[in-house]
């Protein structure tokens, strides 16, 4: 499904045709502004609330905090274990991301640049998995992981995350490796490079833009994963961030600690927000390009 002939360059914002300047229509501007408010308001409200006292949250939901209660953040980080969940997420997502990128790039490269019997079959075996709902695999997956003794362990989660992230990575990078010129690789072979060296030293650096785009996509997908850890990661000490936050928000003990919950929520949003501010153009371009491929 190559729907866009070329990559959407979001930077080109010169409107093709200006509207009739004599009758400026304020309605579209108003509509766009309204949706921006609808989008931003709940997020800002959560951030602001994370600095308020419980009493202020209960009595004046719309007003700003009288003093900044930084202790909410500290309480969420330590007492409510958000810090530990954060660290668990970092370990699991970090491990899975490295493994996914390595295995995904290897498979995509091998399938894109080498002709051999069964090439197409292997490609479709990977890509077909993208069209199955994870719910279908959930029950047997639980028992597979259990039998391997990997239930509730970091390696178990890392391997499962990787297995479910590789298909899209292969799909995305396969077309990317196809478009790379073959002259450089051929020259490297003539210089006596092995197949592995050509991949790691020549092709991988050439594929950097593609790796970056799919890497961001995978990071977000893995960081936001909820269903898999919910089933495969029952030990509260190993909860990942999304799982821990969900558990906190429904557990009776923390129901009353509103400010702590808001702080935890804000902490959970923060890394994604920072990544977005840093790479926002790349992220939007990469994610939308991935969708229409």
């Amino acid at each position: 499904m190559t729907l866009l002939r070329e990559r959407p360059t979001l930077e080109t914002t010169t409107p093709p045709a200006r509207t009739n300047r004599k009758f400026p229509n304020p309605l579209p501007q108003l509509a766009m502004f309204c949706w921006a408010v609808v989008t931003a308001l709940p997020l800002l409200w959560a951030v602001v609330s994370s600095f308020k006292s419980d009493k202020e949250i209960l009595n004046e939901p719309w007003s700003p905090p009288s003093t900044l209660h930084f202790e909410n953040w500290e309480r969420a980080w330590t007492a409510a274990s958000i810090g530990r969940y954060f660290l668990n997420s970092l370990i699991v997502v970090g491990g899975a991301l490295i493994l996914t990128m390595l295995l995904g790039a290897l498979v995509a490269y091998a399938l894109a640049r080498y002709e051999f019997r069964g090439n197409r079959v292997i490609y479709y075996i990977f890509v077909a998995a993208m069209f199955f709902p994870v719910f279908l695999a959930l029950v047997p997956l639980f028992f597979v992981v259990q039998q391997l003794g990997l239930l509730g362990t970091y390696p178990g989660l890392i391997l499962v995350y990787t297995a479910y992230a590789v298909p899209f990575t292969v799909f995305f990078l396969h077309s990317f490796f196809r478009t790379l010129p073959s002259e450089i690789a051929e020259a490297a072979f003539l210089d006596g490079c092995s197949h592995g060296a050509v991949f790691f030293r020549v092709m991988l650096p050439l594929a950097r833009p593609g790796l970056f785009a799919v890497g961001i996509f995978n990071f977000l997908g893995l960081w936001n994963q909820y269903l898999l850890p919910l089933v495969l990661n029952p030990d509260p000490d190993r909860y990942v961030l999304a799982q821990g936050l969900a558990a906190l928000s429904v557990s009776q003990g923390y129901r009353s600690d509103w400010s702590g919950l808001f702080a935890g929520l804000t902490i959970a949003m923060l890394p994604v927000l920072i990544a977005y501010v840093a790479f926002q153009r790349h992220i939007r371009a990469g994610m939308t390009a991935g969708a229409v491929k």
């Binding site: 989008t39 997020l43 977000l220 960081w223 936001n224 994963q225 909820y226 999304a242 799982q243 936050l245 969900a246 929520l265 959970a268 949003m269 994604v272 927000l273 990544a275 977005y276 992220i283 994610m287």
Partner: peptide, 8 residues
């Protein structure tokens, strides 16, 4: 919002 986890 697209970047946030559905949990968040």
């Amino acid at each position: 919002p697209q970047l946030l986890s559905l949990v968040v």
